[in-house]
Write a protein that binds this DNA or RNA. Structure first.
Lengths: 157, 157
DNA sequence: CTTATTGCAAACGGTTTGCAGGATA
DNA sequence: TATCCTGCAAACCGTTTGCAATAAG
Protein backbone atom coordinates (compact mmCIF):
# COMPACT_ATOMS: atom_id res chain seq x y z
CA UNK A 1 0.00 0.00 0.00
CA UNK A 2 1.80 3.08 -1.32
CA UNK A 3 1.70 6.11 0.90
CA UNK A 4 -0.80 8.82 0.34
CA UNK A 5 1.58 11.75 0.54
CA UNK A 6 3.76 10.42 -2.25
CA UNK A 7 0.80 9.84 -4.53
CA UNK A 8 -0.68 13.23 -3.75
CA UNK A 9 2.61 14.88 -4.53
CA UNK A 10 3.07 13.07 -7.80
CA UNK A 11 -0.47 13.94 -8.84
CA UNK A 12 -0.01 17.61 -7.94
CA UNK A 13 3.23 17.75 -9.87
CA UNK A 14 1.55 16.24 -12.92
CA UNK A 15 -1.37 18.64 -12.74
CA UNK A 16 0.89 21.65 -12.29
CA UNK A 17 3.06 20.59 -15.20
CA UNK A 18 0.01 20.35 -17.42
CA UNK A 19 -1.88 23.41 -16.24
CA UNK A 20 -4.73 21.35 -14.81
CA UNK A 21 -7.00 22.53 -12.05
CA UNK A 22 -7.80 21.20 -8.64
CA UNK A 23 -11.48 20.42 -8.22
CA UNK A 24 -13.73 18.99 -5.57
CA UNK A 25 -14.51 15.93 -7.70
CA UNK A 26 -10.86 15.12 -8.24
CA UNK A 27 -10.05 15.44 -4.57
CA UNK A 28 -12.97 13.23 -3.59
CA UNK A 29 -11.97 10.57 -6.09
CA UNK A 30 -8.37 10.76 -4.99
CA UNK A 31 -9.37 10.24 -1.36
CA UNK A 32 -11.55 7.25 -2.13
CA UNK A 33 -8.96 5.83 -4.44
CA UNK A 34 -6.02 5.93 -2.04
CA UNK A 35 -8.04 5.09 1.06
CA UNK A 36 -8.92 1.68 -0.35
CA UNK A 37 -6.38 -1.01 -0.97
CA UNK A 38 -8.96 -2.93 -2.97
CA UNK A 39 -9.16 -3.00 -6.74
CA UNK A 40 -12.05 -0.67 -7.34
CA UNK A 41 -14.25 -0.87 -10.41
CA UNK A 42 -15.56 2.32 -11.98
CA UNK A 43 -19.04 1.78 -10.64
CA UNK A 44 -17.79 1.29 -7.09
CA UNK A 45 -15.78 4.47 -7.37
CA UNK A 46 -18.84 6.31 -8.64
CA UNK A 47 -21.13 5.11 -5.88
CA UNK A 48 -18.67 6.07 -3.20
CA UNK A 49 -17.96 9.42 -4.80
CA UNK A 50 -21.62 10.37 -4.96
CA UNK A 51 -21.74 10.41 -1.18
CA UNK A 52 -19.30 13.30 -1.00
CA UNK A 53 -19.90 14.83 -4.42
CA UNK A 54 -23.59 14.53 -5.27
CA UNK A 55 -24.32 14.78 -8.96
CA UNK A 56 -21.00 13.35 -10.07
CA UNK A 57 -21.41 11.02 -13.02
CA UNK A 58 -19.59 8.30 -14.93
CA UNK A 59 -17.89 10.69 -17.31
CA UNK A 60 -16.02 12.42 -14.54
CA UNK A 61 -14.98 9.18 -12.92
CA UNK A 62 -13.66 7.80 -16.20
CA UNK A 63 -11.87 11.02 -17.04
CA UNK A 64 -10.39 11.40 -13.60
CA UNK A 65 -9.12 7.85 -13.38
CA UNK A 66 -7.56 8.22 -16.79
CA UNK A 67 -5.87 11.33 -15.45
CA UNK A 68 -4.63 9.40 -12.42
CA UNK A 69 -3.28 6.74 -14.73
CA UNK A 70 -1.46 9.27 -16.87
CA UNK A 71 -0.10 10.94 -13.77
CA UNK A 72 1.38 7.60 -12.81
CA UNK A 73 -0.52 7.08 -9.57
CA UNK A 74 -3.11 4.59 -10.81
CA UNK A 75 -2.88 1.31 -12.66
CA UNK A 76 -5.69 0.00 -14.86
CA UNK A 77 -6.47 -3.67 -14.42
CA UNK A 78 -8.83 -5.72 -16.53
CA UNK A 79 -9.75 -9.12 -15.17
CA UNK A 80 -12.25 -11.48 -16.75
CA UNK A 81 -15.46 -9.73 -15.77
CA UNK A 82 -15.37 -7.00 -18.39
CA UNK A 83 -14.89 -4.24 -15.86
CA UNK A 84 -11.89 -2.00 -15.57
CA UNK A 85 -10.54 -1.73 -12.06
CA UNK A 86 -8.00 0.71 -10.69
CA UNK A 87 -5.45 0.39 -7.96
CA UNK A 88 -3.08 2.86 -6.39
CA UNK A 89 0.39 2.52 -7.79
CA UNK A 90 3.72 3.32 -6.21
CA UNK A 91 6.19 3.57 -9.07
CA UNK A 92 8.57 0.70 -9.24
CA UNK A 93 6.19 -1.54 -7.36
CA UNK A 94 4.97 -4.55 -9.23
CA UNK A 95 2.74 -7.47 -8.49
CA UNK A 96 0.37 -9.88 -10.12
CA UNK A 97 -3.02 -11.17 -9.01
CA UNK A 98 -4.59 -14.26 -7.57
CA UNK A 99 -8.38 -14.12 -7.80
CA UNK A 100 -10.60 -16.32 -5.66
CA UNK A 101 -13.54 -17.57 -7.69
CA UNK A 102 -15.41 -18.50 -4.54
CA UNK A 103 -15.36 -15.28 -2.57
CA UNK A 104 -14.16 -12.84 -5.20
CA UNK A 105 -11.19 -11.61 -3.22
CA UNK A 106 -8.19 -10.40 -5.18
CA UNK A 107 -4.81 -11.23 -3.67
CA UNK A 108 -1.60 -9.64 -4.87
CA UNK A 109 1.59 -11.62 -5.28
CA UNK A 110 5.05 -11.34 -6.64
CA UNK A 111 7.36 -14.21 -7.38
CA UNK A 112 10.94 -13.66 -8.39
CA UNK A 113 11.26 -17.05 -9.97
CA UNK A 114 8.33 -16.40 -12.25
CA UNK A 115 9.63 -12.94 -13.09
CA UNK A 116 12.99 -14.33 -14.05
CA UNK A 117 11.57 -17.10 -16.20
CA UNK A 118 9.44 -14.64 -18.12
CA UNK A 119 12.42 -12.61 -19.19
CA UNK A 120 14.02 -15.84 -20.29
CA UNK A 121 10.97 -16.89 -22.31
CA UNK A 122 11.00 -13.57 -24.14
CA UNK A 123 14.73 -13.66 -24.72
CA UNK A 124 14.70 -17.05 -26.38
CA UNK A 125 12.26 -15.67 -28.95
CA UNK A 126 14.38 -12.64 -29.63
CA UNK A 127 12.25 -10.19 -27.63
CA UNK A 128 12.99 -7.90 -24.75
CA UNK A 129 10.38 -8.02 -22.05
CA UNK A 130 8.21 -4.93 -21.81
CA UNK A 131 5.41 -5.91 -19.46
CA UNK A 132 3.16 -8.76 -18.60
CA UNK A 133 -0.14 -9.72 -17.13
CA UNK A 134 -0.42 -12.73 -14.94
CA UNK A 135 -3.71 -13.59 -13.26
CA UNK A 136 -4.19 -16.81 -11.37
CA UNK A 137 -7.71 -18.04 -10.63
CA UNK A 138 -8.37 -20.35 -7.73
CA UNK A 139 -11.01 -21.50 -5.29
CA UNK A 140 -11.06 -21.51 -1.52
CA UNK A 141 -10.02 -24.87 -0.13
CA UNK A 142 -12.74 -26.46 1.98
CA UNK A 143 -13.41 -26.38 4.79
CA UNK A 144 -10.88 -23.73 5.81
CA UNK A 145 -11.52 -21.22 3.04
CA UNK A 146 -8.83 -18.97 1.65
CA UNK A 147 -6.70 -16.83 3.90
CA UNK A 148 -8.89 -13.83 3.23
CA UNK A 149 -12.09 -15.56 4.25
CA UNK A 150 -10.32 -16.97 7.24
CA UNK A 151 -9.47 -13.41 8.27
CA UNK A 152 -12.98 -12.14 7.54
CA UNK A 153 -14.06 -9.39 9.86
CA UNK A 154 -10.52 -8.21 10.37
CA UNK A 155 -10.60 -6.60 6.94
CA UNK A 156 -12.50 -3.40 6.35
CA UNK A 157 -11.98 -2.93 2.66
CA UNK B 1 -1.28 -27.55 -33.69
CA UNK B 2 -4.03 -30.06 -32.97
CA UNK B 3 -5.05 -32.28 -35.81
CA UNK B 4 -8.07 -31.54 -37.85
CA UNK B 5 -9.64 -34.97 -37.73
CA UNK B 6 -9.69 -35.05 -33.95
CA UNK B 7 -11.32 -31.63 -33.75
CA UNK B 8 -13.85 -32.50 -36.42
CA UNK B 9 -14.75 -35.65 -34.58
CA UNK B 10 -15.17 -33.94 -31.26
CA UNK B 11 -17.33 -31.27 -32.85
CA UNK B 12 -19.50 -33.82 -34.60
CA UNK B 13 -19.95 -35.77 -31.39
CA UNK B 14 -20.99 -32.62 -29.57
CA UNK B 15 -23.46 -31.65 -32.26
CA UNK B 16 -24.96 -35.13 -32.42
CA UNK B 17 -25.31 -35.24 -28.65
CA UNK B 18 -27.18 -31.95 -28.67
CA UNK B 19 -29.32 -32.46 -31.74
CA UNK B 20 -27.62 -29.67 -33.65
CA UNK B 21 -27.49 -29.44 -37.39
CA UNK B 22 -24.67 -29.34 -39.88
CA UNK B 23 -24.73 -26.20 -42.00
CA UNK B 24 -22.63 -24.65 -44.68
CA UNK B 25 -21.73 -21.70 -42.44
CA UNK B 26 -20.51 -23.95 -39.67
CA UNK B 27 -18.38 -26.01 -41.99
CA UNK B 28 -16.84 -22.94 -43.57
CA UNK B 29 -16.00 -21.48 -40.17
CA UNK B 30 -14.61 -24.77 -38.98
CA UNK B 31 -12.34 -24.99 -42.02
CA UNK B 32 -11.01 -21.47 -41.58
CA UNK B 33 -10.63 -21.96 -37.89
CA UNK B 34 -8.57 -25.15 -38.00
CA UNK B 35 -6.60 -24.19 -41.08
CA UNK B 36 -5.02 -21.28 -39.29
CA UNK B 37 -2.69 -21.66 -36.37
CA UNK B 38 -3.00 -17.96 -35.66
CA UNK B 39 -5.21 -16.44 -33.03
CA UNK B 40 -8.08 -15.17 -35.12
CA UNK B 41 -10.27 -12.28 -34.07
CA UNK B 42 -13.97 -12.35 -34.86
CA UNK B 43 -13.64 -9.81 -37.61
CA UNK B 44 -10.87 -11.77 -39.32
CA UNK B 45 -13.00 -14.90 -39.15
CA UNK B 46 -15.92 -13.01 -40.65
CA UNK B 47 -13.95 -11.56 -43.53
CA UNK B 48 -12.50 -14.92 -44.45
CA UNK B 49 -15.85 -16.65 -44.10
CA UNK B 50 -17.59 -14.23 -46.43
CA UNK B 51 -15.44 -15.47 -49.28
CA UNK B 52 -16.96 -18.93 -49.10
CA UNK B 53 -20.30 -18.08 -47.51
CA UNK B 54 -21.50 -14.74 -48.88
CA UNK B 55 -24.03 -13.02 -46.70
CA UNK B 56 -22.74 -14.48 -43.46
CA UNK B 57 -22.78 -11.92 -40.65
CA UNK B 58 -21.33 -11.27 -37.23
CA UNK B 59 -24.15 -13.01 -35.40
CA UNK B 60 -23.38 -16.33 -37.00
CA UNK B 61 -19.67 -16.03 -36.37
CA UNK B 62 -20.21 -15.20 -32.72
CA UNK B 63 -22.74 -17.99 -32.27
CA UNK B 64 -20.63 -20.53 -34.09
CA UNK B 65 -17.45 -19.77 -32.20
CA UNK B 66 -19.34 -19.99 -28.96
CA UNK B 67 -20.53 -23.38 -30.12
CA UNK B 68 -16.96 -24.41 -30.91
CA UNK B 69 -15.93 -23.27 -27.45
CA UNK B 70 -18.69 -25.27 -25.79
CA UNK B 71 -17.81 -28.27 -27.90
CA UNK B 72 -14.31 -28.03 -26.52
CA UNK B 73 -12.48 -27.41 -29.76
CA UNK B 74 -11.93 -23.65 -29.42
CA UNK B 75 -10.43 -21.50 -26.72
CA UNK B 76 -11.42 -17.86 -26.24
CA UNK B 77 -8.52 -15.50 -25.64
CA UNK B 78 -8.78 -11.86 -24.70
CA UNK B 79 -5.59 -9.86 -24.96
CA UNK B 80 -5.30 -6.14 -24.37
CA UNK B 81 -6.86 -4.89 -27.57
CA UNK B 82 -10.49 -5.43 -26.63
CA UNK B 83 -11.02 -8.13 -29.22
CA UNK B 84 -11.84 -11.72 -28.54
CA UNK B 85 -9.64 -14.15 -30.41
CA UNK B 86 -10.08 -17.88 -30.88
CA UNK B 87 -7.58 -20.65 -31.28
CA UNK B 88 -8.00 -24.32 -31.99
CA UNK B 89 -7.71 -26.38 -28.84
CA UNK B 90 -6.50 -29.91 -28.37
CA UNK B 91 -7.79 -30.99 -24.98
CA UNK B 92 -5.12 -31.28 -22.36
CA UNK B 93 -2.86 -28.90 -24.22
CA UNK B 94 -1.97 -25.75 -22.44
CA UNK B 95 0.15 -22.75 -23.17
CA UNK B 96 0.47 -19.05 -22.47
CA UNK B 97 1.29 -16.18 -24.78
CA UNK B 98 4.13 -13.86 -25.61
CA UNK B 99 2.98 -10.94 -27.71
CA UNK B 100 5.37 -8.83 -29.73
CA UNK B 101 4.42 -5.17 -29.53
CA UNK B 102 6.53 -4.38 -32.57
CA UNK B 103 5.22 -6.80 -35.14
CA UNK B 104 2.09 -8.06 -33.42
CA UNK B 105 3.03 -11.70 -33.59
CA UNK B 106 1.68 -13.94 -30.86
CA UNK B 107 4.04 -16.68 -29.68
CA UNK B 108 2.89 -19.55 -27.52
CA UNK B 109 4.96 -20.84 -24.64
CA UNK B 110 4.80 -23.16 -21.71
CA UNK B 111 7.14 -23.19 -18.77
CA UNK B 112 6.98 -25.89 -16.13
CA UNK B 113 8.78 -23.81 -13.57
CA UNK B 114 6.20 -21.04 -13.87
CA UNK B 115 3.36 -23.54 -13.76
CA UNK B 116 4.69 -25.07 -10.59
CA UNK B 117 5.24 -21.75 -8.85
CA UNK B 118 1.70 -20.68 -9.60
CA UNK B 119 0.22 -23.64 -7.81
CA UNK B 120 2.47 -22.79 -4.91
CA UNK B 121 1.35 -19.17 -4.85
CA UNK B 122 -2.28 -20.26 -4.70
CA UNK B 123 -1.61 -22.89 -2.06
CA UNK B 124 0.02 -20.47 0.35
CA UNK B 125 -3.16 -18.37 0.27
CA UNK B 126 -5.39 -21.33 0.91
CA UNK B 127 -6.63 -21.69 -2.67
CA UNK B 128 -6.53 -24.50 -5.16
CA UNK B 129 -5.48 -23.41 -8.60
CA UNK B 130 -8.27 -23.45 -11.17
CA UNK B 131 -6.84 -21.64 -14.15
CA UNK B 132 -4.67 -18.74 -15.07
CA UNK B 133 -3.89 -16.22 -17.73
CA UNK B 134 -0.33 -15.24 -18.39
CA UNK B 135 0.49 -12.85 -21.21
CA UNK B 136 3.97 -11.47 -21.69
CA UNK B 137 4.49 -8.38 -23.83
CA UNK B 138 7.82 -7.71 -25.49
CA UNK B 139 9.49 -5.96 -28.35
CA UNK B 140 11.71 -7.28 -31.12
CA UNK B 141 15.36 -6.84 -30.29
CA UNK B 142 17.15 -4.67 -32.82
CA UNK B 143 18.60 -5.24 -35.27
CA UNK B 144 17.79 -8.95 -35.47
CA UNK B 145 14.07 -8.74 -34.79
CA UNK B 146 12.16 -11.48 -33.04
CA UNK B 147 12.35 -15.08 -34.20
CA UNK B 148 9.11 -14.68 -36.09
CA UNK B 149 10.28 -11.69 -38.05
CA UNK B 150 13.57 -13.40 -38.66
CA UNK B 151 11.65 -16.25 -40.23
CA UNK B 152 9.38 -13.94 -42.21
CA UNK B 153 8.40 -15.35 -45.54
CA UNK B 154 8.64 -18.89 -44.30
CA UNK B 155 5.33 -18.45 -42.47
CA UNK B 156 2.06 -18.36 -44.30
CA UNK B 157 -0.33 -17.72 -41.47
C1' DC C 1 -43.07 -31.56 -41.28
C1' DT C 2 -40.57 -30.35 -37.21
C1' DT C 3 -36.80 -28.18 -35.16
C1' DA C 4 -32.62 -25.78 -35.58
C1' DT C 5 -30.26 -21.98 -37.94
C1' DT C 6 -29.62 -17.87 -40.34
C1' DG C 7 -29.36 -12.74 -41.27
C1' DC C 8 -30.97 -8.58 -40.04
C1' DA C 9 -31.59 -4.96 -37.02
C1' DA C 10 -32.32 -3.57 -32.55
C1' DA C 11 -30.60 -4.00 -27.81
C1' DC C 12 -26.75 -4.16 -24.66
C1' DG C 13 -23.02 -2.88 -21.29
C1' DG C 14 -18.98 -0.56 -20.62
C1' DT C 15 -16.54 3.42 -22.14
C1' DT C 16 -15.82 7.82 -24.70
C1' DT C 17 -17.03 12.28 -26.53
C1' DG C 18 -19.41 16.92 -27.92
C1' DC C 19 -21.23 20.56 -25.95
C1' DA C 20 -23.14 24.37 -23.10
C1' DG C 21 -23.05 25.87 -18.50
C1' DG C 22 -20.21 26.24 -14.23
C1' DA C 23 -15.96 26.35 -11.49
C1' DT C 24 -11.01 27.44 -10.91
C1' DA C 25 -6.76 30.15 -11.09
C1' DT D 1 -11.36 36.81 -17.58
C1' DA D 2 -9.33 32.92 -19.84
C1' DT D 3 -9.20 28.27 -19.39
C1' DC D 4 -10.28 24.13 -17.56
C1' DC D 5 -13.87 21.03 -15.79
C1' DT D 6 -18.35 19.17 -15.17
C1' DG D 7 -22.76 16.75 -16.18
C1' DC D 8 -25.72 15.36 -19.49
C1' DA D 9 -26.94 12.90 -23.37
C1' DA D 10 -25.63 11.00 -27.50
C1' DA D 11 -22.16 8.29 -29.79
C1' DC D 12 -19.20 4.18 -29.87
C1' DC D 13 -17.61 -0.55 -30.15
C1' DG D 14 -17.64 -5.24 -29.49
C1' DT D 15 -21.03 -8.57 -28.44
C1' DT D 16 -25.76 -10.55 -27.75
C1' DT D 17 -30.56 -11.27 -28.72
C1' DG D 18 -35.52 -11.27 -30.79
C1' DC D 19 -37.64 -12.36 -34.74
C1' DA D 20 -39.45 -13.85 -39.16
C1' DA D 21 -37.66 -16.30 -43.04
C1' DT D 22 -34.96 -20.44 -44.41
C1' DA D 23 -32.64 -24.81 -44.37
C1' DA D 24 -31.50 -29.38 -42.28
C1' DG D 25 -32.94 -33.95 -40.86
Amino acid sequence: MPDRAALQQRLNAYMAAHGLKQTRQRQVLFDIFVASDAHLAVEELLVRAQVRAPGIGYATVYRTLKLFTEAGIALERRFQDGQTRYEAWAKGEHHDHLICRTCGHIFEFEDDVIEARQAEVARTRGLTLVSHRHDIYGECMEPEGCTWRAAAGAHKD
